[in-house]
Write a protein that binds this DNA or RNA. Structure first.
Lengths: 117, 117
DNA sequence: CAGTATCCTCGACGATACTG
DNA sequence: CAGTATCGTCGAGGATACTG
């Protein structure tokens, strides 16, 4: 099983940089998208998977676990058959909303055009 | 006989997602920090290197080149001896200011505490 | 000063198969 | 449905040495 990647360096100088620290938490593969979709509300695993596009199940699970460990999302398990698991933003996660929306706006104006060039 | 090599996934999942697109541009190793420091003004290579902490020269160069290719920073070369190269934000780069400041604030309030826990 | 050039490790990630 | 488990590759990125 893959382990969560911690700061590579015991004390990497960026460790003290709050900008890097923020990015460290939600810039992993697909995390931005996951958080963004969860702004709309609670979603089940497969709903999320559909919205997130072609991300492997393995990766989605991994990213979700990391976000959960950072207390940005909450995972609610319903002990039913078939299984049902719902993901939602935590209070802390919701504080990211303005940033996520800003990233979305900026992306539409600047990032997407450059990437699709 | 040799097996055919398959191309890696050409596009990341969520290619159309503007949030991911934004993160794609400046979430690379150290890019956030670089951009943040350049908010203060033009910096020479070694000044940047000092502020960015212990990032290898190789990595710094690479990140700078990428940011340049995205037109977020400008590289001004002075043909002198010893060499002098100055980095600054482009117009587009400067549009990131509110986001970078938001990331910094959020990082101080939420990210750093969690990472240092 | 501001970079290249090389070499090498190691872990992120995709693919696939299996399960409660 | 919502995951694990296992395997293999590939490339990010560190270390080091050299240079106009």
């Amino acid at each position: 099983m893959d382990t969560v990647k911690r700061p590579r360096y015991a004390s990497y100088a960026g460790a003290g940089c709050p900008v890097e620290a923020s990015l460290e938490l939600f810039s992993g593969k697909g995390k931005g998208m996951i958080l963004y979709h969860l702004l709309e509300g609670t979603l089940r695993f497969n709903e999320l998977k559909r919205r997130v596009g072609n991300m492997t199940q393995r990766m989605l699970t991994k990213q979700l676990r990391e976000l959960e460990s950072f207390d940005l999302i909450h995972r609610e398990i319903y002990p039913e058959i078939p299984p049902k698991v719902e993901y939602s933003l935590t209070e802390t996660g919701r504080t990211l909303e303005p940033i996520l929306l800003a990233l979305k706006d900026w992306g539409e104006q600047h990032a997407l055009p450059k990437l699709l060039k």
